[in-house]
Design a protein around this nucleic acid. Structure first.
Lengths: 142, 142
DNA sequence: TTAGTAATGCAAATCATTTGCAAGAAGAAC
DNA sequence: GTTCTTCTTGCAAATGATTTGCATTACTAA
């Protein structure tokens, strides 16, 4: 029940010049209540299980709206669906459990990677994405 | 015209207990003639432009067959379509031009990353994928 | 050459995601 | 609170990548 985080983002919605609708409040609530990145379908199913009548397309539309305003960012963990997480501003990576899907955040292990590659290849390097896959402490034994 | 590389892979097809069909010969040929990873659709279009009658589904089926035999591997460069490249055996990453789509190979800049993360998180770490994005020397100016 | 089975063509299905459009609901102004 | 405007949503259909079912074709072993 992090009511403060929820109202923080609801505030952001208003500041962005967006209307604060039922759909937006509910999507933010789901994201705040779940620590890790979620896909549109996951959010949709969580909402449905709580008897929300929102449509999947509405979830998608709002997730993209939030990304466009910089509130969320889209992450591709290579598991079929794209996921969405709050945009903390800091550059980070993901460690994904291949069995249960748990996601942990990783700091960037290579701060000057982009410069190094830029020097070696003459590319104008803009960003990099690192995903690490394995089995979490629970799944590695179970 | 690397006829040797072509016959090397045709050999591999036979050794894998697969039939050497027209589709397989043509797909291998396209992959040998183009240095970087290609998507099923890209291979399909290259073949069509050479008047090959192969179906897109046949291209997909064979690419997956080759992956299952370890001849190819699938790489997700985050550009919509999955790409396929010969499986060199060595662990490597990709540098992708966001304008022209050129792909360069990168050695792994973090050889002991997996061990480090494993120690820190108690995960059984299995693999990691790194994609670097930017603009190639030609596109960064053009 | 032929039989047996794997591979292909073709069309339809599937999965994630997007879009068009009419109906509905925020929020500003009264 | 009511009204008006415009942004949002619902719903259904479209899209793009990929997969699948099934009848037909073509490898290859004998």
């Amino acid at each position: 029940m992090s009511k403060d985080r929820k109202s923080y983002w609801e505030q952001k919605i208003r500041e962005s010049g967006l209307r604060l609708t039922r759909a937006r409040r509910e999507i933010i609530e789901v994201l705040v209540d779940h620590s890790g990145p979620l896909s549109a379908r996951e959010i949709f199913l969580i909402l449905r299980s709580a008897f929300s009548p929102l449509e999947l397309s509405t979830v998608y539309r709002n997730l993209h709206t939030f990304c466009a305003r910089g509130m969320l960012r889209e992450v591709d963990l290579g598991m079929g669906e794209k996921k969405f997480e709050f945009n903390s501003g800091e550059h980070r990576h993901h460690l994904i459990c291949m069995k249960c899907g748990e996601v942990r955040f990783l700091g960037c292990p290579l701060p000057h990677l982009e410069d190094d590659i830029s020097k070696k290849t003459s590319y104008d390097v803009v960003e990099h994405r690192l995903n690490v896959y394995g089995f979490c402490p629970i799944c590695r034994n179970g």
